[in-house]
Amino acid sequence: MVRLAALAIGVLLSSATRAEGVLLPEGRFAPLFGLDKGQRSFAVAAFRLDRRLVTEAAFAAFLRSKPEWSSASVKPALADERYLSQEGGAAYAQAPQTRVSWFAAQAYCEWRGGRLPTTLEWEYAAAADEKVRDASTDAAFVKRILTWYGKPFRREDLLGSGSLANVYGVEQLHGLVWEWTLDFNGTFMTSDNRQDGDRVNALTCGNGATGSARREDYAAFMRYALRSSLSARSTLANLGFRCAYPATEERSP
């Protein structure tokens, strides 16, 4: 009976979180990196994005369904030694799930019928503030984000609310954790890739900032730098994720 009730709650929760997916309309966006000479922006197709970060409670449901992703069973190639090593218990049930690898985050999103958002999609969503779609050149907006980046991280910060709903209705894009993207290492900028003969040196010392689209958006620059420092099995205490879905996705009944 208890199990049945738990199951019912689980079903309710999962349909509730599914309904939280927010539609982001198509638009154009100039990411900090990736534009070729002569390109000013990219078209972004409409997509749906989780309103909030994936919580520890939601991830626990995934682990019950897919125990191969538990810290005890996960293959070492798919997650580093600190995978799911955070402690905090029930108090953190609604806190964002961190200490999760790209492989696990993507597996979770596929389990939910989605995928991780691309970097372009994530930056498109995260450029919006409460009033406008693209605040990435708004000095006050960028400063707000940078102020957060400058604060040392403490685990209890995960109990905070993060940024409020932006103009699309998406929350927590800033102020809580960094987030995985589907193509986090697809930007061809690494801290130093001089040894990789064929790679493009987008970020050799100061090159990255000068070659970028908007010199003033240092916050975005830091996100690209963080992403490029990760490998797909990395986990961090303040790196979480949310999922994206096709714009046309049918709601589950």
């Binding site: 990736g34 990219f42 993507q106 697809g186 490998s231």
Partner: peptide, 19 residues
């Protein structure tokens, strides 16, 4: 998703210019 997964297993990097 399959392509991203296989390439991540190999740490093979690629990026498509969407335009």
């Amino acid at each position: 998703a399959a392509l991203r997964t296989l390439t991540q297993l190999l740490d093979f990097k690629y990026a498509q210019n969407p335009e």
